[in-house]
Amino acid sequence: MSLSHATPMLARGGRHTALSGRRAWLIIAAPAVALFLAFWLLPMVKLAGLGATAPTGETANAYWLVVSEPRYWKSLFNTVGLSLAATLATLIIALPVGRFLARHPSFPGRRVLMSLLIFPLAFPGVVVGFLVILTTGRQGVLNTLSQLLTGEPTVLAYAMPGLFIGYVYFLLPRTIGLLTAAVEGIDKQWLEAAQTLGASTWRRFVDIELPALTGALTAAGAMCFATAMGAFGTVFTLGTRIDVLPITIYDEFTNYANLPVAAALSVVLGLSTWAVLYAANSLAASR
């Protein structure tokens, strides 16, 4: 094309380029939206609908059964209790680690330490379950040590304590990164100001650091809780006799072929985890 002719070179698209130009981009998000609708949202709606049907041999619909039967309640309470305990333990352990890493940005071996702390992030639940068996199972290190020292066997792996250890194991790497970043984000001058005003390390922690970390702790806690609520691989490896909701759902689906109840429980589990995450994130964002 010659550059010398007098008429200006116009971009295609005419007069409404600014507005319609932007709008026209929308089409390229269509594949992602279509995939989401076809393979997640509509299936979920269908699953929710299935929960409203009656299982074979029952007259009430599955949601009613789930709400009225104590054994489902017990399963839900177990799951919530375990998830809360694991979340709290994780936050309490991860906070000093995050503080230490954030406050010491350069010491020999910090990189390696970070890598080691983060590596288990990619482990699926089944692997975590296996590691729990290796350490606290019948042939685990803990049992060997315990028999050597006290003569009594100590086996935690196949019940709630083992599951708790496993949950803390996979929650820690997720939480440490978040809290380290949050502590790094605290304005150092706040702490220095408090220090010159006479506040001890402990008072600075309580009065300045904790309030500044509330948002991050809420968000991290919600993430931990949601992850723990839905965790399946770990408990699957440790033994299907532990009564938590994901195992109950799995049992209803595979062993009893009770699809309506499995669907109803999934919807209850999904909604409750999502609600916790959503509430916590809104809370954290409003700070």
């Binding site: 997640w40 269908k46 699953l47 839905g230 985890t273």
Partner: peptide
């Protein structure tokens, strides 16, 4: 937020939904 739902909601629920529909 919608696209993130499959991460927020337990995988078991997503898998069941997929099996029920497809």
């Amino acid at each position: 937020e919608l696209l993130t739902l499959p991460v927020a909601v337990p995988g078991l629920a997503t898998a069941l939904a997929l099996i029920v529909s497809w």
